[in-house]
Amino acid sequence: MHSRAPSIDLPVQPARPAPRGNRESVQPIVGGQVGAAITNPMPSDPITPPPLRVSGLTLAYGDERVLDDIQLELPTSQLIAIVGPNGAGKSSLLRSVLGLAQSQGNPVVEFFGQRLTEVRRRIAFMPQRERVDWNFPTRVVDVVTMGLYGEIGWLRRIRGHHRNAALAALERVGMAELATRQIGELSGGQQKRVFLARTLVQGADLFLLDEPFAGVDARSEEIIARELQALRDAGSTVAVVHHDLTAVRRSFDYCVLLNRRVLAAGPVAEVLTAERVADAYDGVVPLALLDATRPETID
């Protein structure tokens, strides 16, 4: 602790003991009235509705509120990071907007201005850890093709061009050579890339990915990051739950700071200030995260 002090910039230091009650004042909720709020600095075109708009979303497990009255609007064609401490409800946020976790009350959840059921094809989701049977008799290419099953439709067969689309997606994530491997024969990073390929093949406009970088090797990380940027460049909106604030700073456009509530949402540089991060992480910010925030706090 003490040995670290000299290397820390002044603006960071006072943020650490920030009183909990202080949090409210820093909170620039979208649509809220808070002082220095960075309220939706990239307002979406009023004609095209945002890829995701959430209002009044609350999720509780038993008595514990995991998400508390979430207000959020994601901008179009951006690479968006959703960050926050463990237990902040990042996964729960994605899962509840997709109807995979049951939220309380009647929240507004709109994708492109419509209900989820009307725009399923435009949304692709990659869960944190696939809860699948890794011994399942299925090959890598089959898993990716599964991303197309909804689109192929009832009573229709899987055709050559579906397989080719799957192979092309595998090519993008550098897994084409392993296309005929049984899915359980891959490493963790390779499995992530296969499930990313299954997401890619869906050709969605909004990609929601839960911790695609958790526990992957360096090569997989590089490939996944490259593909996410390619999606953004092609006009898709990509929202990613992320742990590594350094990486978020380096390559993301927009950031949602979450700790049960949306503490801030806006361009990365404006959201990931030392104070906001310290506040969101309850004052307990790992050194690496502080390092990541420091350069920008100077100006």
């Binding site: 997709l98 399923r120 696939e130 809860r131 399942f136 299925t138 599964m146 689109e151």
Partner: peptide, 22 residues
């Protein structure tokens, strides 16, 4: 046989099946 594709996805990844609208 008619539902082979749907049964496959449901057996392998029911969550994904749901997201695809099955």
């Amino acid at each position: 046989i008619a539902l082979f594709k749907e049964f496959t996805l449901m057996a392998f990844d029911p969550e994904q099946a749901r997201l695809q609208g099955l």
